[in-house]
Design a binder for these strands. Structure first.
Length: 140
DNA sequence: GCCAACGTTGGC
DNA sequence: GCCAACGTTGGC
């Protein structure tokens, strides 16, 4: 199983909206970046991801799960763009802020730190466990 | 609100 | 195929 990070702006798509979709989940559409798209094409059912809010919030607020593998993005006719569906698994007891992540030296190599603009990112297993611990949330 | 970093576009 | 110009993102 692989781990990922999905980035959103609360004003565009919030954690509450994601939770409201329940186990049906929702398309992670609108991505128009090849690297991010390629990561989504690699995703498998059951893969887990962090739900990160950029801009004003700048924190990881919960865990999501891939509930449909890569398929055409329904928001465009351009067949270059695919996306997955994700559903909310659980919120973090303690959201983990970007400041906390930057202050943790074991997370210095996280994509969020190295390339903050990428909207879909990979997360290593050790990074996953550290962030879950910081969020006081079970990792599985 | 600013601006650096990055990705994309299009002229050559 | 290069690279300047442009648009967008996101941290600050």
């Amino acid at each position: 199983m692989a781990y990922w990070l999905f980035k959103s702006e609360a004003s565009t798509w919030s954690w509450e909206q994601q939770v409201a979709k329940g186990d049906v989940g929702e398309e992670w559409d609108g991505v128009r970046n090849y690297q991010a798209r390629n990561f989504m094409r690699e995703m498998k059912l059951g893969d887990r991801g962090f739900f990160y809010l950029s801009q004003k919030d700048r924190k990881i607020v919960g865990i999501v799960e891939v509930c449909a593998e890569s398929h055409p993005d329904s928001t465009t006719d351009d067949d270059r763009w695919d996306c997955v569906d994700i559903k909310a698994v659980r919120p973090f007891s303690n959201p983990v802020t970007l400041d906390q992540i930057k202050a943790e030296e074991r997370l210095a190599e996280m994509v969020l730190v190295k390339n903050s603009r990428l909207s879909v990112q990979t997360v290593t297993e050790s990074e996953w466990r550290i962030v879950c611990e910081m969020g006081q949330t079970k990792p599985d």
